[in-house]
Computed example of a mutant assay.
Amino acid sequence: MSEITRGPAEVGDDERLARAALSRVFEPGEPKTGALLRTSGGASPLLERLRAGEGPPKGFTKARWEGLTARALRADPQRDLERAATVGARFVSPGDLEWPSQLDDLQDTRPLGLWVRGPADLRMWSLRAVALVGARACTDYGTYLAGALAVGLAERGWVVASGGAFGIDGAAHRGALGVAGGTMAVLACGIDRAYPPGHARLLARIAEQGLLLGELPPGEHPTPSRFVTRNRVIAALTRGTVVVEAALRSGALVTARAAERLGRHVMGVPGPATSGLSAGVHELLRGQAHLVTDAAEIVELVGEIGELAPEKRGPLVPRDLLSPEAASVLAAMPARGVVPAESVALATVTAKDDVIARLYELQALGFVERDGDGWQLTRRTRTTASAGWERGGRV
């Protein structure tokens, strides 16, 4: 056996070979498979049972069992391992030191094993990973945000996980790669296939700098159902799932719902209320999902205690620096015209001498000016106030 298929492990080679063989027999994500594996006492006894031609177990029809038996007889795990090794891939099985234990949360839908391609340690990377998923036919807004979030996460030492597809997936992978960060793509096909073909160069870069992984053995092609079942692996491998942009019917929502079932954090990036490509995200946000707009807010949810996002506030304006007394006097000044100090004192319920002191303070700061025996706002203050109120903000 090639050394790339070995490595530090607790699982025996026979069990590993059996699991590799069964990855060609069963479709990923079927609960019946996990239950059968559990009741059979492991992969090796189950594979022997299939090849022995025994009758179907409970829950399997005769026709279905015969089909699985035929697949088991044709399976050649040694050949698959050698084929994987030609592209620098390995088979990671439950019980291996590289196996991410959080995948065990999938219970009977846990992968039989994972075909992994890339230099990083899958288990270590999965401990600090976040999924960024979304629409394939995304908008420029979605593309920009996915890339920006990936950059921010990578710069904070987080691994960006996605599905390697067009749109949001590709933007997320490129963002992480662009800052030499970690990224992993979970595939719905064999580890030696580039799908979609238009992402062949991107997937090759991920294999060199990050990780490509999937449940299907070399040479297997993607199908609609395999994309759907693949999403549960993305959800389970990561600390949380962020949906950047998704319509009401979107595979990204499948990932989000899987993450929620697994007790992972579910996050969504809001978009225009009129955009159909954000409608699915908005439905998530109406439920239990958390609204996020940048990497710091994501890390606040999935990171360690104390990794808080900075408080956001509008720009500081000169009036913010005034004392409460001076601000009260300034607020009592009319937008136009001259007013005596007595009128300001009456409006603020303040002694006249105190108001005059505050008016001179405001004059020194350029907010008001004297006009004879009265006071008025300076032209600059009037202009700033008018523009500020038109924007609906403070001045």
Rank of each mutant, 00 (worst) to 15 (best):
T143M: 12
R249F: 07
S126M: 02
E304D: 13
V292I: 15
G276Q: 05
W375G: 04
E98D: 15
G34T: 05
G7P: 08
A256W: 03
R83P: 03
T61W: 02
Q209G: 02
L103P: 01
V244Q: 00
V355P: 04
T183R: 02
A89H: 11
R261N: 12
S275Y: 11
E30H: 04
R382Y: 08
V254N: 15
S2V: 10
M1N: 07
S23E: 06
G134V: 12
V151G: 06
E369M: 14
Y141C: 04
A63F: 03
I4Y: 03
A351M: 10
G178D: 09
R49T: 13
L321N: 11
T381G: 05
G214Q: 10
D80F: 13
A148Y: 05
I234E: 02
R19L: 12
R24G: 15
E297R: 12
L145Y: 02
G147R: 03
E311I: 13
D80M: 05
L284E: 02
R205P: 00
T384W: 02
T293G: 14
G178E: 07
A137I: 04
G175H: 06
A335C: 06
F367P: 02
S40Y: 08
V254G: 08
E297I: 12
G163W: 03
S126E: 00
R117A: 01
L106M: 09
P324F: 14
E27F: 06
G157L: 14
P334N: 05
L237C: 00
P340F: 14
L153E: 01
D294S: 14
M124W: 07
P56K: 07
R49H: 06
E82R: 14
